[in-house]
Design a protein around this nucleic acid. Structure first.
Ligand SMILES: [Mn+2]
Ligand SMILES: [Mn+2]
Length: 429
DNA sequence: TAACCG
DNA sequence: CGGTTA
């Protein structure tokens, strides 16, 4: 029967899923504003390809590979067999089990298939097939089901396995949804973004992520970042010119386009050695929040994802433009760093993440801990079991490289992601 | 804990 | 890797 459409290629099917939610008339037209309509670029693979799926694939090895792994089966002389259709069904079942990580079941189907291929006459039942080596109870049942209904339930379901994987990937493109929540939402039965928007348990972060799923995937040209940065700097210095405001992230690494805007702030009043803890807390809290408030008031910040005393995550937008109207919403992160840790903060927030990991691993191997709060040496006390923290004074980014005995790298040389090997750490003691 | 930041 | 936020 219709054993024909053996495994639709994975790529087109992904495309289809991503496109589907486009302009689906939903009861959400009031919730979903015009720019918010869920339509998608058909899964970009562009340079850096740093979108949700890819982005998080630093952990996951990326779900694909099903396309290639799928057809290495020992298709013998199926063509000649009077039971060709049955064999094809068994082959597909074998492939499905392999894709499910069930190598023993895969083998069982392959073995059964081989003996059926060798069988000279048409099989009329599963029972008849069971006389052959490698065909047991379970497989006989599948054959019966196929002969009676023209299909096997398990195979029909496997199609929806693929669709489930696509949905999980789609949901993971929403900021605030990771692998765990994506799976749980799919398990709950959500089938589209419009659907998911109804989930009452969505966090505020996830709602923002859903609202801007398309805009957040848009690359930001460097000159737009420059204008956004200018607004932040002006607003901040209007509050207090003693703020230091610097853009970090990929912008500081010289990228022509970025995914978001990362800014670190510091202020001479925010240091670790301040009179009272309560005083420090007050200053710490207000120093960042004052800036956030000003930027909210002028309409620059349109949504907030999280507001802490030292880290703000939100959404920003250039003011309405005469020529092309409303501008795209972008993610923005503000980070307040204690004044004396400014260079460690700059280093950490310039990244990239891989470069940070490398430096931190190196620091650790040499008995230090490196973070945005500085370089700290763990020293064991000569007598007890105690350890002291010796804070290394850092006057520049270069100081950190020096202490760790690494060659200095300018920001634009710190792009380690996607670099194949890099003999940087090489061997460690 | 999950997700996020570099 | 080492950190913040909810
Ligand atoms: Mn960034
Ligand atoms: Mn960021």
């Amino acid at each position: 029967m219709s054993t024909t459409h053996l495994l639709p290629a994975v790529l087109p099917s992904l495309k289809a899923t991503f496109k589907r939610p486009l302009l689906l008339r939903s009861p959400f037209s009031n919730v979903l504003t015009k720019q918010t309509r869920f339509n998608f670029q058909p899964t970009r693979s562009a340079t850096g390809g740093a979108q949700k799926i890819v982005k998080k694939s630093s952990k996951l090895p990326q779900e694909k590979t099903q396309t290639q792994s799928v057809n290495k089966s020992p298709s013998v002389q199926i063509k000649e067999s009077p039971n060709r259709d049955i064999c094809e069904v068994l082959e597909r079942l074998a492939i499905q089990e392999r894709n499910n990580g069930q190598p023993f079941k895969e083998r069982a189907y392959q073995k059964a298939m081989r003996s059926i291929v060798a069988y000279p006459t048409r099989l009329n039942s599963g029972k008849e097939a069971q006389t052959l080596p490698g065909v047991g109870d379970k497989i006989a049942k599948k054959i019966d089901q196929f002969l009676e209904t023209g299909s096997v339930e398990q195979l029909l379901l496997s199609k929806s396995n693929q669709e489930e994987a696509d949905l999980i990937n789609l949901f993971q493109r929403i900021s605030g949804i990771g692998p765990v929540k994506a799976k749980s939402f799919v398990d709950k039965g959500y089938k589209s973004l419009e659907d998911l928007a109804k989930e009452p348990q969505l966090t505020h972060h996830q709602r923002i992520g859903l609202k801007y799923i398309k805009e957040f995937e848009e690359k930001i040209p460097r000159d737009e970042l420059e204008r956004l940065l200018d607004i932040v700097k002006k607003a901040t210095h209007e509050i207090d010119p003693r703020y230091i405001v610097e853009a970090c992230g990929s912008f500081r690494r010289g990228a022509n386009v970025s995914n978001d805007l990362d800014i670190i702030l510091t202020h001479p009043d925010f240091t670790e050695v301040m009179e009272s803890a309560t005083d420090r807390k007050k200053v710490k809290t207000s120093l960042l929040m004052q800036v956030v408030q000003a930027l909210e008031n002028c309409g620059f910040l349109t949504d907030s994802i999280s507001k802490g005393s030292v880290k703000y995550m939100g959404v920003c937008q250039l003011p309405k433009n005469k020529t092309d109207g409303l501008c795209t919403h972008h993610r923005i992160d503000l980070r307040l760093i204690p004044h004396q840790n400014y260079y460690a903060g700059l280093l950490a927030w310039t990244g990239d993440d891989e470069h940070n990991r490398i430096m931190r691993l190196r620091a650790k191997a040499r008995g230090y801990t490196l973070s945005e709060y500085g370089l700290v040496r763990k020293i064991k006390a000569e007598i007890g079991e105690d350890t002291y923290d010796e804070k290394i004074h850092i006057q520049s980014e270069e100081d950190v490289f020096k202490v760790l005995d690494m060659p200095y790298k300018k920001p634009h040389e710190r792009n380690m992601r996607g670099v194949v090997k890099k003999k940087y750490l090489m061997h460690e003691e």
